[in-house]
Design a protein around this nucleic acid. Sequence first.
DNA 1: GAGTGGTCTAGACCACCCG
DNA 2: GGGTGGTCTAGACCACTCG
Lengths: 254, 254
Amino acid sequence: MNSAPSNPALDPVSSGSPSFRPLYQQIKALITQSLQAGEWKPGELMPSEVELAARFKVSQGTVRKAIDELAAENLVLRRQGKGTFVASHAEERAHFRFLRLMPDEGLPHHPENRFLEVKRIRAPAEVARLLDLKSGDAVVYIKRVQSFDGQPTILEELWLPGQLFKGLSAERLQEYKGPMYGLFETEFGTRMIRATEKIRAVSADAATAEHLKVAPGTPLLLGERVSFTYGDKAVELRRELYSTVKHHYLNELS
Amino acid sequence: MNSAPSNPALDPVSSGSPSFRPLYQQIKALITQSLQAGEWKPGELMPSEVELAARFKVSQGTVRKAIDELAAENLVLRRQGKGTFVASHAEERAHFRFLRLMPDEGLPHHPENRFLEVKRIRAPAEVARLLDLKSGDAVVYIKRVQSFDGQPTILEELWLPGQLFKGLSAERLQEYKGPMYGLFETEFGTRMIRATEKIRAVSADAATAEHLKVAPGTPLLLGERVSFTYGDKAVELRRELYSTVKHHYLNELS
DNA sequence: GAGTGGTCTAGACCACCCG
DNA sequence: GGGTGGTCTAGACCACTCG
């Protein structure tokens, strides 16, 4: 006989086998909801495991397993002796999680930004489709060049749902130190969780060549990224052009 | 007081804090050794958790945590109700683990192979360096074209340590159905665990253009892959050229 | 029904961090 | 010294698979 009290509040259809959902996954979903709702902000300390266990009327081992998965998905960060923290793109360690372009020589470092355009436009059909908007909905359009050691290397365009990013301006972007995703989460409450990237090789057209200071026709990497926030909701579309003269796109296969 | 018997055979320096190593990681290392030694072959059923717990004189929970990590690293595969299996590149599900080139339209499927060259040569300096060999050591060199629906799409060159791949011939390669990594693990006892890939954009030279049926100068993806087996030992170098006219390199960022 | 991995609990102890 | 996450154990029960 299991001496566990077993929490009746959670999933009354728990037993009986069809569509069984483990307790720890339900806890995980609840914690995720709190994260999404901003109950604990990025960078902040979360309640301890014992506190959460008490709150959800569940054993510590169960919330531990829930948090384990959240940590594996980079939503949360555990530090022994200190506690569990809400992950943040403002942290140093997160900066290269989505930026995979590495210098052929030397250590990775941060690029300098130059914003070419920041404006609100109506979403083109393709953008609307990928961001799950209606064609013609407002989107924020950003175009920028990123340079390493004064060498322009990345030319990228971004499209963001206008609804979520009201008031995003070139000034805000230019002022902000650190990765854009840091600004997005602190100023606009939108946190990027994961992304998919499709990469192709293309030739630099005249305008692009000018921005990246390469000869027209130079082969470039073209990346098309769709980023998702909680609930697998697409909230960013990027079109990136990388010069791979002194850099490469690094991928770890496992 | 902990009623656990605690196994004295494992890490007598366990307590005392400096260089502490959790029991489950020691168990994980032992299981990995057995995998490497071929005690259980790819695709085979491993001993159950209770058996392993008895063998290592440790609780089931501890071997479970060890196996959990092995499963997360794709070394092992758990199937509820059946048991734990040694992962294999011959399995269908493993085929696209290292091949990230996807068709723009339609479902991913398997390429047809055509081998252009298979020979033993002396390792060039660069190859020797990346494979941790001495310059001039014997290596197997392979050159092949992979096609999707009759369309040549990938031109690649491989270098493998001659010592590990004695007797690898064009015939063996051509006969074998399924991914090369399957052949490597079943015929040569070398299993690829993980790899790092550096990607750049380049122009097709005349010879490459001919092989891939594209115009000379067409932009292509260039991938340089180093694959590792147990113990982080480099055992394969690949130089891949991808045509991205109807395909793209897919990457999931998280 | 027997065996396997998967879940859940409870309790003890350990390593780590900070005041 | 007290709090936090991390390890380890033991035991019960559940979901799944197969004969």
